[in-house]
Design a protein around this nucleic acid. Sequence first.
DNA 1: AAAAAAT
Length: 734
Amino acid sequence: MPKNKKPAGGRAQNFEPRYGKKTSYQDAKRRPGQASAGTTGSKSPKHRGFRAAEESAPAKGRWTEQDRAGRAEARGIRSNSRGDRGFDDRPRRDAEGERPRFDRAERPRFDRSGGAERPRFDRNERPARSFDDRPRRDDRTERPRFDRSDRPARSFDDRPRRDDRAERPRFDRSGGAERPRFDRNERPARSFDDRPRRDDRTERPRFDRNDRPARSFDDRPRRDDRTERPRFDRNDRPQRDDRPRRDDRTERPRFDRSERPARSFDDRPRRDDRTERPRFDRNDRPQRDDRPRRDDRPRRDERANRSDWQAAEKSKAHQDHVDVVHERLQAEAVDAASVEQASFSDLGLGQNIVRTLEGLGATSPFPIQAATVRPILDGRDVLARGRTGSGKTIAFGAPLVERVLRGQAGKRRAWGRSPQALILAPTRELALQIDRTVQELAQSVGLFTTQVYGGVPQGRQVGALKKGVDIVIGTPGRIEDLEKQGKLDLSEVGIVVLDEADHMSELGFLEPMQRILRLVQDDAQKLLFSATLDREVAALVDEFLVNPAVYEVAGETQETSTIDHRVLVIDHRDKAEILTSLVDRDGKTLVFTRTRAYSEMLVEQFEDAGIAAVALHGDLNQAKRTRNLQRLTDGKVNVLVATDVAARGIHVDDIDLVVQADAPDEYKTYTHRSGRTGRAGRAGTVVTLITRQRRRRMTEMLERAEIDAPFDEARAGDDVLEEITGRQAANVDA
DNA sequence: AAAAAAT
């Protein structure tokens, strides 16, 4: 029996204890009457959401008398899904009549101030909600009233839009209702996750009060446990070997000898068989190798039976799979200069969308956008390769919204309508990020989006889908899950986007993608985007795309990039110290590790050195993942240590240093990790740490990535580290 | 190895 007993099928490491710990934390740390997301009327003060009988009883009586009827009328369908404010059509519609009046009178002044005020409102509202959930719920029924007063402020930004709407009859209907909605949607977007949010909110206050301590306690003990476990194991084993084990060992053989004989009769013949079997296996293997199908099977058998074979074959198989260089797709190279003069408007996008793009900072199209918008509007299947940070999200998002809008022209947006478009991403963070952009575009023309991804309760997502959304953005697992449950109808989806399409075509993603693509309309338009788009997408292209247009942007080479690449050849014993000195700087630094465990270890190491750092990897719960990424975005920490979950697509402004604590195995991974810096033309540095043994592999990988990077030998404290971090050497001397 | 569903 191994020393570390783990439940069968359990994960090797779990940094977010999901079972007992969560419930005990809920019971132990929650105080009666404290903000809670629990249902009202929980039985005991120790339960979340407990409310004393006296509070609710009298109020309940009143409601049943008169208010109920009035409320029901006022709230309408809303009562079916209290949590989803963003989708409350009726309050909004009721408010619409009033809004225009207010808006017209006030718009000019508020336009300027409006933008600045929104954040303030959000902040004010959140605390209010976070103090008491129950009052919040009451507030929610009242909120429409507050919202009406608030909306004017919010809607002022919309006024230009509304003017636009006046130009477009279609937009007016949807637009007038939407923009206020948009404001709400921003909140709603948040509000879609009302329940999770409420959970978050209720958790946050807890954390804030107890929390930061609470969190730090949870983290440190865990980290301590983790760090201690290996240490103890290592220390204990030798010690035990020296003292007790030797005794045990001398004793055990004796016992074994006395016991085994009885058993050994059966065993020996078996052992003979076993010794023969490997021989046969070895003889058979060449035979099997001859048969094409069995090529893989002997490997698996070997792995199961023999650890040495396992190691050898595994690394061989690993290398077989790793870093396959696929043929470049034949693409029409779009010359940036030739399309530079076209505006978004010229490309066929409507005024509302163009205006929203301006608000997002996209005043004129980037090359990849100039290339793809028109063919997408024309309804073609499109494959597009644009390097990291080149604006791919808008390149597919804006024309997608425009097409969904055109497809709905003249139709009424019905309750519970099925989504018309689907955007798929490989990670939850990326899905969220895409939604932030696409949702704004959609809102500007009165369309709704919702996110469908795992790691959060389904309720809010299902509630949104029930009310009807136009564009679904999510990750494959939850989308399939909800579809199987009959809660997500993909049969009317006419446009599908695969972001990071080559990654979505890799083992593990390919089959879910195929299943999902088979559920949408047969003739649905397909859009495949990635910075490293190659023939790996062939499996999907051949089955699902019709005569696709393929685009890339001419002249995207390292020379036109703003990223400076460095490789440091180090001794393994210097690694920890070098990493600490690399992240000990002012700018935002993103550190990549190969494993979740190492990312946790590095966070602990940095914090021990007095450098605030957070982790991002798949063993954290979604709330923590989102929070930790947000803390980097907000600048509350400057160091994020992540696995490859953060390698693709994630945009954080101002990351000016990417450190690869573990070198990537694939050139594509190198490309995507590097692309977290140097975005939209900003400068950035990528540093990869390797040991001497890895020089050759690294050189080959950089060739495939078409990157030229100097290799420097570095030891702890070397000047080259100061040069990279931008610190002055004087600081080091002191 | 990691990621993507939940249990």
